[in-house]
Design a binder for these strands. Structure first.
Lengths: 263, 263
DNA sequence: ACAAAAGTGTTAAGCGTACACCCATGC
DNA sequence: GCATGGGTGTACGCTTAACACTTTTGT
């Protein structure tokens, strides 16, 4: 595998900066995170990540990484945290990973130039920029890359142990989502094109891990003034048919913008 | 000046990453920002910034930059944004600055090695990490560095035009402060050791640019359960003496921690 | 008719503001 | 006493939750 992989150190990346993506989906009343299992020996899971080209916005780098794993280009994306600890890339972790993958990283001093440079690249200190993305799971067919052995959706409460601080990064992504959801109107990106009020409520309850009163919830959502009510949805079920709603991006962009977090 | 300045390209910094600090203070019912005027010819203002050493946490880099300008070490600090646009360092700006400072940056092709390397360093694309700090203005004696001609507190509504996106960075720092103030309890860092309830209310009104009802404001603040009520403050004024309060860091650290944004 | 889920009404608690009032303080 | 500003009480409106009720739909 070493031979058909282009060496990362050859590419025109910004050095010592990486982007890590928390890709959030929603299904069966649960938030889910798309997590690859990494192509190293031993059980290593880690958030989809990558590097930033010299002439590329960090936002675009995140979009590129997302496109590789999800196959969709138009995703909601938000930068929410920088991991800047100098000792993030802990010595123990590196020793364990490299020790179990000696064919990839063998003895850097005895190896050829390419391996040596990749070793230097990966073992250096990195500053990571955390993004979270909200995607409609129905539109995504998870794609593993050369760096993964598999890629799967995990319920946000049942994540595998990930490398470094990646579990904490997910927790912080969720905290940011909760904090800004009403201002950003981004929750709708987790749902399909049309949805019922109950589906939005279920989603909110999944995000906040608490129940909302059923009578006021529609008022709370409709007050945001970004939903169109469509015709009723007749499912054939023996009960009252709920209305369908659609997120109206045109109307949402007319909201009073505060340039919050926008560059 | 070129001769007594150590060349930035010599130092052991992480390349293409910078830290920018929004240093916020509070006086006369106004939020204020500490802004240096840069030591370039022409009128250039810019946020205090710097670079990150290889073995230094980004948080510590921000603290170091803050200490240089304020002389205090124990400040409230929070990372709130990354500026990652590839074309941030706009061509027009660089041309204008370098054109007006030819003695510093002269013709890079004709100059010595040091100048050439500094030119390369400064004109490359940077990813900036934005921090905001909250400081008690009474404890700060603004210090200009070699890079500044002066440094001053400006009301947040009357900032000078700053380089690049620095004015927008300040706006985003304020937006973040408003969003998280009740969870972070950080507003108290803007006040002196002891303060009256009215002073906290004035501060909140300055931050949010709106008035709060006087009767339940104390309830709102005391509910946070982080203030100690001290003895009354007899000023000699012909009116009822207000109580003094003190922020109790011990009690605030016992709050339910959610690891929000903490690395 | 009946079950199931959608949707609405009633009541109460909590928090916010506006306004009025009382209280302490020094002249 | 009196002006000044700190501190508190009342009335009202809005938001949320718990609970009950009505409405719609297909069997």
């Amino acid at each position: 595998m070493k031979n058909n992989m282009e060496s990362v150190s050859d590419k025109n990346y910004i050095e010592q900066v990486s982007v890590e993506c928390v890709i959030l989906g929603y299904q069966d009343r649960q938030l889910r995170v798309l997590v690859p299992k990494l192509a190293f020996k031993g059980d290593f899971w880690g958030l989809p990540g990558g590097f930033v080209y010299q002439d590329e916005d960090t936002d675009d780098a995140a979009r590129r990484i997302l496109y590789e794993r999800t196959g969709i280009k138009d995703v909601y994306l938000e930068q929410f945290q920088v991991m800047g600890k100098a000792n993030r890339n802990s010595r123990e972790f590196l020793d364990r990973m490299i020790g179990q993958n000696s064919d990839l990283f063998s003895d850097p001093l005895a190896e050829g130039q390419r391996s040596r440079m990749d070793y230097d690249w990966f073992t250096r200190r990195f500053i990571s920029i955390g993004y979270y993305a909200l995607v409609d799971m129905n539109q995504v067919i998870p794609q593993k890359t050369d760096l993964d052995v598999s890629i799967e959706w995990y319920p946000i409460g049942e994540l595998p142990p990930m490398i470094m601080d990646h579990n904490q990064i997910v927790a912080n992504a969720l905290a940011t989502l909760r904090l800004t959801i009403d201002q950003k109107l981004n929750a709708f990106n987790l749902l399909p094109e049309t949805f019922t009020m109950q589906e939005i409520q279920d989603l909110y309850e999944a995000i906040f891990e608490k129940r909302f009163a059923q009578n006021n919830f529609p008022k709370r959502i409709l007050r945001l003034n970004v939903l169109d009510r469509l015709e009723k949805k007749y499912t054939g079920a023996a009960n009252k048919a709920p209305y369908l709603y659609r997120f109206d991006r045109a109307r949402s962009s007319q909201l009073p913008t505060e340039d919050l977090f926008t560059e």
